[in-house]
Design a protein around this nucleic acid. Sequence first.
DNA 1: TGCTGCACTTAGTATTTTGATT
DNA 2: AATCAAAATACTAAGTGCAGCA
Length: 719
Amino acid sequence: MSGDHSHNEDQIDYASRVNDSHKQKDKYKEYKHKEHKKDKEREKSKHGNSDHKDLEKKYKDKEKEKMKHKDGSTDKHKDKHKEKRKEEKMKSLDGKIKKEKENGFASPPHVKSEPENDYHSPKYEKSLKRERDDDYEAEFKPKKIKTENDKKAKKRKQEDEDIKSKKTKSKKGEAADGKKKAKQEPEQKWKWWEEERYTDGVKWKFLEHKGPVFAPPYEPLPSNVKFYYDGKHMKLSPEAEEVATFFAKMLDHEYTTKDIFRKNFFKDWRKEMTAEEKSIITDLKKCNFTEMNEYFKAQSEARKAMTKEQKQKIKAENERLLQEYGFCIMDNHKERIANFRIEPPGLFRGRGDHPKMGMLKRRIRPQDIIINCSKDSKYPTPPPGTKWKEVRHDNKVTWLVSWTENIQGSIKYIMLNPSSRIKGEKDWQKYETARRLKKCVDRLRAQYREDWKSKEMRIRQRAVALYFIDKLALRAGNEKEEGETADTVGCCSLRVEHLKLYPENEGQEFVVEFDFLGKDSIRYYNRVPVEKRVFKNLQLFMENKEPDDDLFDRLNTSILNKHLQELMDGLTAKVFRTYNASITLQQQLKELTTADDNIPAKILSYNRANRAVAILCNHQRAPPKTFEKSMQNLQAKIDAKKDQLSDAKRELKSAKADAKVRRDEKSKKAVETKRKAVQRIEEQLMKLEVQATDREENKQIALGTSKLNYLDPRISVAW
DNA sequence: TGCTGCACTTAGTATTTTGATT
DNA sequence: AATCAAAATACTAAGTGCAGCA
């Protein structure tokens, strides 16, 4: 990697959501670190379903398999499973895998239900830590590592099981006490990543599910909750009332102050009114929803104040629903569905300056629903007296249910959970592609640098765009329909008005300033020095153009992607984001960690690295609502600690003085104790302070997204 | 070549749960 | 037991990219 591609955080300056101007006052500072957050995360990690971590394990295993193959096994399949079995010893599932293999994905037979909670030992990660000096690369190193690897794997498995079955709460120390008696797991996780994938476009052979769960019907308000128009009480028809409640529920939200939102809402609301209502209600400003609003607030208060039993009951009911509708059977396996509930009606909450915000999102009925399942499955039954729009059997797609949404006219789907085979495989592939990119990225970079000099405008534009995508991790930037969505852009759709060129800026040459709204109307602001050629090209591209003209007028995403496809199979613009996020993580980890750091220090480093990635990808969030308050609380804690510290110090002093006079064992001991106390408090204080800085720094940065979508779990595992 | 529709990933926010602390 | 922050999860909007068509 050439030097100018290292993404360091000072490249990226400050960014914020523009449509929320009060939130952007804080400058992005040099980030510091957080100690405990991750600490806790790892140390405890009780409840499973951390899909991500789960995946880490899967990848890990899969990789191991690959190594084995390289080691010269001939018959992939069998060997694979034999070895695996051996490894897993008595794990009770002998033959299971094999069977699956054989009857492939025939219809029903017996279905194995996967334990839905995939626990994942945090310790497991630790124990792996130095296992491999992995590189973010497709290179496997079969040799020596293998044996060691296997051993550890065994151990890890045990731990894994152990944790799983025990739901242990105690945070154990180091890996040492991890592997007690490994309990036998009755239910074995399905290791889809050890199986063959479908090749042709087929996504499954058998699919059975119960269909979606519809939103509960509207419950009219009690008669004492009134709506007033122009000061006068007015009883609304149920249809109009329902829509009114949508608005009433949002009264505290900024949305309801926005003109577009109000306008759209009012227009759609009127459509639901009776002729009479329509004739009376002509001005939203004269509508008084406060009683309704208060009613809903009271409702949610009441819900919070419910007794344990009541809460239990609701929980149980949810659980029942989940058990019944939350799973499907796909190719012999019971898999979790991500979103089995149909989106309830409400007001559309577009992000940024969305022209359609406030529009009524219709209630979805069975006759809007398309069911997808296999022919030989038991079809889901529509609610009594209703019909599905269609039942189809398309095994080239992964969705179970779809419907067309009325705001944008786009299609919504019900699909599987990320832990499912179908999603996991895709995710795995994504990182594989990114690894392949690593192998040829140098060549690609050389090429686009060359292309900056091309005689053809379209090639130059393509090359510069690619440079941005690579260096700054910009998104591709498909064009979008004007007026249908918020005005946001990505690389290919950048307009002249989105960048400023400075031949000279703060001591640096050829600085480009980006300022635009990207996905979700998150502001991207960055000032970055570029190479002279790029700069000259940009000047050229911007010549004689209006601010709202396209910067790359000879380029769009499909041209760019077509080009990328030629350079490397499967390469598209977004692969660069994955690649650069992952490589940044890896670099940062390398840079920040020293081999013999203690655990907290390592965790700290991991967090920093993670944050660097989030900054690179411009992942932001609105500062949490309770931010100010929680900050104050923390500050109070710090102050208290400080007091405590000075007290302790004083005590230490007097103890010392005392010891000097008395010169006996007892007083000496007392000094020691006091000294330790001071030390302890100092440590605690430091921790708190770090926490404070960290929280401040993290205010606007969202770490989750990168962790979830961009960072190859193998890097974390290897580390 | 451009357009559109579809399928799927990525994203931020809202809500719920957890677990630590007082 | 009450409170609160953080983590996990639910939700759904907003992207990407491809295929099929004219």
